[in-house]
Nucleic acid binder design. Structure first.
Length: 280
DNA sequence: AAAGTTGCCTGCAAGC
DNA sequence: TGCTTGCAGGCAACTT
């Protein structure tokens, strides 16, 4: 469940049980996620206190009192489950619900257990410093003041690539994924496939606004929940009901005054949903 | 069969 | 010509 709004929702859910707590127990139930866990992962985290929980792009960063941070990425299917303070009552916690994909377990000094599940295992964790190159390479936060039309003008200049693929490039703007790029381009009525250099400059400001709007609305809705089977303890987001183009192939275009039909195409190996009538 | 992720690899074009 | 760089597209990692 992982684009910026989903990661932000996860961050907000973990913050109250994690920040200020120390990790009494850490268990890695396999040596790797997408990549091998770093050397001494469990030892280096056990006993550490979490100072803060931040989001950067689609990354979660738990700052540690012993320096550095725990970097976490949800990949495609990564998710966290939080279970209450059973330890305080002297009861052992039940086995993870989906034991096969429960890869990392944290238990705080309050006895709260936080389990990281990831069926496809495209997610990853690492222990990093502030100068980690994955973080330094990221473009501006789309909801930040420094993301504006000028940023897009620079990124689009001279590019034959479509706006769709450039907006997915985390070096241009950090945190957008397939869903919200499709949604934002539709709101701004910009073709996802035309050469980015051919998008008129006056259209970049509305595009920035569309990106900020759709992300803000999605965060307010708790993100989007796709293909989420067992409803975890946390509530599911409901923004998927507000999709105007994503996964809406064949539906009428909801843009005002447009009588087009939503189509699906493939760009850089990923589905693009758009209205060929009003997005030009 | 398709999937919301990133990053690596390739082949090609452009530039010096 | 040959080398380097950037670009654009494809694919791999895995499970349901």
């Amino acid at each position: 469940m992982p684009e910026l709004p989903e990661v932000e929702t996860v961050r907000a859910g973990l913050e109250p049980v994690l920040v200020g707590r120390s990790l009494a127990r850490v268990e890695a139930r396999r040596p790797d996620l997408r990549f091998p866990l770093p050397d001494g992962f469990v030892q280096r985290l056990t006993g550490a206190r979490v100072l803060n929980l931040r989001r950067r792009a689609k990354y979660l960063l738990a700052g540690l009192d012993r320096g550095g941070a725990l970097l976490m990425h949800l990949g495609m299917t990564g998710r966290f489950e939080v279970e209450g303070a059973a330890m305080r009552d002297g009861f052992a916690l039940a086995a993870p619900a989906d034991a096969k994909h429960a890869h990392i377990l944290f238990e705080t000094d309050e006895g709260v257990r936080i389990t990281f599940y990831d069926a496809r295992r495209f997610g990853f964790m690492d222990l990093v410093e502030d100068d980690d190159r994955r973080l330094l390479a990221l473009g501006p936060e789309p909801l930040g003041a420094d993301f504006d039309a000028t940023v897009l003008a620079r990124a689009f200049a001279g590019r034959r690539q479509g706006p769709k693929t450039l907006l997915l490039d985390q070096r241009v703007v950090a945190g957008l994924g397939n869903i919200y790029v499709c949604e934002a381009l539709h709101r701004a009525r910009i073709s996802p496939t035309q050469p980015a250099a051919s998008v008129a400059p006056r259209r970049l400001e509305p595009l920035v606004a569309a990106i900020k709007d759709v992300l803000g609305e999605a965060i307010a809705a708790g993100g989007s929940s796709l293909r989420d089977f067992a409803a975890a303890n946390g509530e599911l987001g409901y923004f998927q009901h507000s999709f105007r183009v994503y996964d809406q192939e064949g539906e009428p275009c909801p843009n005002r005054g447009c009588r087009g039909t939503i189509r699906r195409t493939v760009q850089a190996g990923r589905s693009t949903f758009f209205c060929p009538t009003c997005q030009r």
